[in-house]
Simulated scan of single mutants.
Amino acid sequence: MKFGLKAGLNISTLSNMDMKSKAGFYGGVFANIPVAKDFSVQPEVLYSATGAKGKGDNNTQLNLEYLSVPVMFQYKALPNLYVEAGPQFNFLIDARLKKTASTSLLKNGTQSFDFGIGLGAGYFFTKNIGVNVRYTAGLSDIVKTKYQYGYDREGSVKNGVFQIGLNYKF
């Protein structure tokens, strides 16, 4: 079993919202547990900043912060290359809508739990240092109440997060 750190860039979107993608940060720890010759399970605990930005107004941002717990099932396709897939459990830390100079708290209108499925790949340049890319598709509607942004929204709002980052194994 190996332990490690990982950190990188989130590019996140929200379905059924008339908003653009937003950049954010993720970082945390992982444990890589071999279960067979080319298979391992990698649970992680990550801080993840997601959300979206207004299309016409870059000063409007929906900022969501989660404690994310992905459990990735990894297959070593080549000696240094792996592919992965698995569930991700997100626990809401904070939700805020920022418009120009004002910020409003949206935590009461946002679900405290979000479930998603992740799919990704990674490559280790050395025994300890590697890169990872992953896309996590949210399967839960994150809106608890039907609040309005000046128009009617139909359908559920789900997170979609693309990640690229660095891994370090101890």
Rank of each mutant, 00 (worst) to 15 (best):
Leu78Asn: 01
Ser102Gln: 13
Val69Pro: 02
Tyr75Thr: 01
Pro87Lys: 02
Leu97Trp: 02
Met72Leu: 07
Val83His: 02
Asp94Cys: 08
Thr110Asp: 01
Thr103Phe: 01
Ser104Gly: 15
Gly86Tyr: 10
Pro87Tyr: 04
Val83Met: 06
Asn80Arg: 13
Tyr82Arg: 08
Glu84Phe: 05
Thr110His: 00
Ala85Ser: 13
Val83Gly: 06
Ala95Thr: 11
Asn90His: 01
Met72Asp: 08
Ser68Arg: 10
Lys76Arg: 13
Pro79Thr: 05
Leu97Pro: 02
Ala101Ile: 09
Phe89Leu: 15
Pro70Thr: 11
Asp94Ser: 15
Ala101Lys: 14
Gln74Ser: 07
Ser68Trp: 05
Pro79Trp: 00
Phe73Tyr: 14
Asp94Glu: 14
Pro87Asn: 03
Tyr82His: 05
Pro87Trp: 06
Phe91Arg: 03
Arg96Ile: 05
Phe89Trp: 10
Ile93Phe: 04
Asn108Lys: 15
Gly109Phe: 03
Val69Lys: 15
Phe73Lys: 00
Asn80Ile: 10
Leu92Ser: 07
Tyr75Met: 07
Thr110Pro: 07
Ser68Gln: 11
Leu106Asp: 08
Phe89His: 10
Tyr75Phe: 12
Ile93Cys: 07
Phe73Ala: 08
Val71Glu: 04
Tyr75Gln: 02
Glu84Ala: 08
Asn108Arg: 08
Ala77Tyr: 06
Gln111His: 03
Leu92Asp: 03
Lys107Pro: 01
Ala85Phe: 12
Val71Leu: 09
Leu78His: 04
Leu92Phe: 06
Leu67Phe: 12
Leu67Ile: 13
Ala101Met: 15
Asn108Trp: 06
Ser102Pro: 06
Lys76Ile: 04
Thr103His: 07
Met72Thr: 11
Leu67Asn: 03
Phe73Ile: 10
Ser68Pro: 03
Thr100Lys: 15
Ala101Pro: 00
Gln74Gly: 05
Ala95Gly: 09
Phe73Gly: 14
Ser68Phe: 12
Pro79Gln: 00
Asn108Val: 09
Glu84Trp: 03
Phe91Met: 14
Ala85Gln: 12
Tyr82Glu: 04
Ala77Lys: 03
Pro70Tyr: 10
Pro79Met: 01
Leu106Val: 04
Pro87Val: 00
Ser102His: 09
Gly86Lys: 08
Glu84Cys: 04
Phe73Ser: 14
Leu106Phe: 10
Tyr82Met: 04
Gly86Val: 09
Lys99His: 15
Leu81Ala: 07
Phe89Pro: 00
Asp94Asn: 15
Leu92Asn: 04
Ser104Glu: 15
Thr110Met: 00
Asn90Gln: 06
Ala101His: 11
Leu67Asp: 09
Pro87Asp: 01
Asn108Phe: 08
Leu92Pro: 09
Val71Ile: 02
Met72Ala: 04
Leu67Thr: 12
Gly109Lys: 02
Ala95Tyr: 10
Asn90Asp: 13
Val71Lys: 02
Lys98Cys: 03
Lys98Ser: 05
Pro79Asn: 08
Ser104Val: 14
Tyr75His: 07
Ala101Asn: 14
Leu78Pro: 01
Ser104Asn: 14
Arg96Asp: 10
Ala85Leu: 09
Leu81Asp: 04
Leu105Met: 13
Thr100Trp: 13
Ser102Lys: 11
Leu81Ser: 07
Lys98Gln: 09
Gln88Trp: 02
Tyr75Asn: 04
Gln88Ser: 11
Ile93Ser: 11
Thr103Met: 11
Asp94Gly: 13
Leu92Val: 09
Val71Cys: 02
Gly86Thr: 03
Leu97Lys: 07
Ala95Ile: 08
Pro87Glu: 00
Pro87Phe: 00
Thr110Ser: 00
Lys107Ile: 06
Tyr75Cys: 07
